[in-house]
Nucleic acid binder design. Structure first.
Length: 490
RNA sequence: CGGGGUGUAGCGCAGUUGGCUAGCGCGCCACGUUCGGGACGUGGAGGCCGGAGGUUCGAGUCCUCUCACCCCGACCA
């Protein structure tokens, strides 16, 4: 492990208990790997949604909603798409229950079998393109730039909280364009939106690039992705944007009349990020004291803890904190005064650290006398005593510092665990310690497959940003146009 | 679906070669003392020991069958 203490296994409950619980479904339930997102966890997701929505709208997109159920036949229209998803679909076969004639309880009414089974969407390309067929007649109807916030179900063999749950929340954008170029530009634009969201809002450094053919989305001609490094050195695909060519237009017969009077198939893109981002956030920033939430996503940015003895003193300290709170709120900072009087301050400190609140303010009688407050930052765990005058401004810029520092810290971590490796022998040895490996690769699926089988590492991303150095494949010695990133991944 | 492991209070666990009333820590409730980094005392509530069947005078403990969960593979965002 790249960083011994900060791996997911050890900090699993520390990081996740405030965000989610395992779904406590009834015995005998075949549903596995579902999660309950607690209010605190969901509040972070809502912040992510709001930020992403803003970015989507700035790039001209609108939200819509499409059905949860997809007729089975839709899925089979696009050959590669079915192949990719067929093995993990939840299927609805009946629409009614009845009292069990042989005893108590309910059984599925055998007379209520659906003529055509419905698939619970694993992704919505098919049902959306079935709709787009009706929406698109002319070049004047294009482009269509829709996004939907939804839940999807993928019946994975093995699940893992946030990273691979059977049901997850996400957004999926589905766009339709008149030209190939336009669709390709859109694909890149949205990958870039994801990259800047990750960097600016999540304080998560990501590598933007494309996937190899074997890692591509089922039905896509090109898949772009952002790839992040977790603190155990493993890679996490955090968002994808696909250029779908005319595959879905052909499968659903979506043509448009061109200005010149011709009839052409529509070009498409689709892109999505999911609650997996929550996992990325947690695993990239968490430490041994719990979560560390970047200020831009923190449901609560500043928690205020009064220090006091006795009810009378508590009243005075809390009143004092309320004044400070008012100042912070006028700067748009979210705050909470923790006035629970059955808990000691030390306990509260630990508890808010566990939740990852970026800044903690503590004020006691001593501070009130001296006109100071104690300010503690979650990212570095540093405490300082600052003057109460100008506290709002101080906190405001501190939050911004924390946001930047968290990004820089994660970036330094990634850089320290990214290695340029030229020999396959060295690769095999060092992959055991985790991290990203910048290697030359001959571009073939065979080599990729071999590396995967022998080392469990996969080709994560072919980065757009590279130094242009050419070389020879570390495995086969054949020519390589650029270095690519191999890593073990979640 | 293969290989391994675990099911006992809300959480984490102990429970010996079967033995009588099933325990501990944390948490929870009440009262009191505390209160600048996870306080302490006293009292209290909370269990069909995953489920079914068997062996036995007696099963948390042994046997059979099941179910669920966790870890490692195959599959995947």
């Amino acid at each position: 492990m790249a960083k011994e203490v900060n791996n997911q296994e050890e900090n699993y409950s520390l990081w996740y208990n405030n965000l989610v619980t395992k779904a406590d479904l009834a015995e005998n339930s075949a549903v596995r790997g579902c999660m309950v997102i607690k209010p605190y966890g969901y509040a972070i997701w809502e912040k992510m949604q709001a930020d992403l929505d803003r970015r989507f709208k700035e790039t001209g997109h609108v939200n819509a909603y499409f059905p949860l159920f997809i007729p089975k036949s839709f899925l089979s229209r696009e050959a590669e798409h079915v192949e990719g998803f067929a093995k993990e679909c939840a299927v609805v076969t009946h629409h009614r229950l009845m009292a069990n004639p042989n005893g108590q309880g309910l059984i599925v009414d055998p007379d209520a079998r659906l003529e055509e089974e419905l698939v619970v969407r694993p992704t919505s390309e098919t049902i959306i393109w079935n709709t787009y067929k009706d929406w698109i007649k002319s070049y004047r109807d294009l482009p269509i730039l829709c996004n939907q916030w939804a839940n999807v179900v993928r019946w994975e063999m093995r699940t893992r909280i946030f990273l691979r749950t059977a049901e997850f929340l996400w957004q999926e954008g589905h766009t339709a364009h008149a030209t190939r170029e336009e669709a390709e530009e859109e694909t890149l634009r949205m990958a870039e939106v994801y990259a800047s969201f990750a960097r600016e809002t999540m304080a998560l450094p990501v590598i933007l690039g494309k996937k190899s053919a074997s890692e591509r989305f089922a039905g896509a001609l090109e898949t772009l992705c952002i790839e992040a490094m977790m603190q155990d050195g493993k890679a996490l695909q955090s968002g994808t944007s696909h250029f779908l060519g005319q595959n879905f237009a052909k499968a659903f017969d979506v043509k448009f009349a061109t200005k010149a009077g011709g009839l052409e198939y529509v070009w498409a893109s689709s892109w999505g990020v999911s609650t997996r981002l929550m996992g990325a956030l947690v695993m990239a920033h968490g430490d041994n004291k719990g979560l560390v939430i970047p200020p831009k996503l923190a449901p609560l940015q500043v928690v205020m803890v009064p220090i006091y003895k006795g009810e009378e003193e508590m009243g005075r300290v809390v009143e004092h904190l309320k004044k400070i709170q008012k100042g912070l709120e006028t700067k748009g900072i979210s705050t909470k005064i923790d006035d629970r009087d059955h808990l000691r301050s030390g306990f509260k400190f630990a508890e808010w650290e566990l939740k990852g609140v970026p800044v903690r303010i503590a004020v006691g009688p001593r501070d009130m006398e001296q006109g100071t407050v104690e300010v503690a930052r979650r990212d570095t765990l540093e405490k300082s005593v600052v003057s109460q005058a100008g506290i709002s401004t101080h906190i405001h810029s501190l939050l911004s510092d924390i946001q930047d520092n968290m990004y820089q810290k994660a970036l330094s971590f990634r850089e320290a665990h990214t290695h340029r490796v030229n020999s396959y022998a060295e690769f095999k040895e060092r992959i055991e310690d985790g991290g990203f490996f910048l290697c030359h690769w001959d571009g073939t699926a065979e080599t990729e497959e071999r590396i995967k089988n022998e080392t469990k590492a996969t080709l994560r991303v072919i980065p757009f940003d590279h130094d242009g150095e050419t070389g020879t494949c570390m495995v086969t010695g054949k020519p390589s146009a650029q270095r690519v990133i191999f890593a073990r991944a979640y």
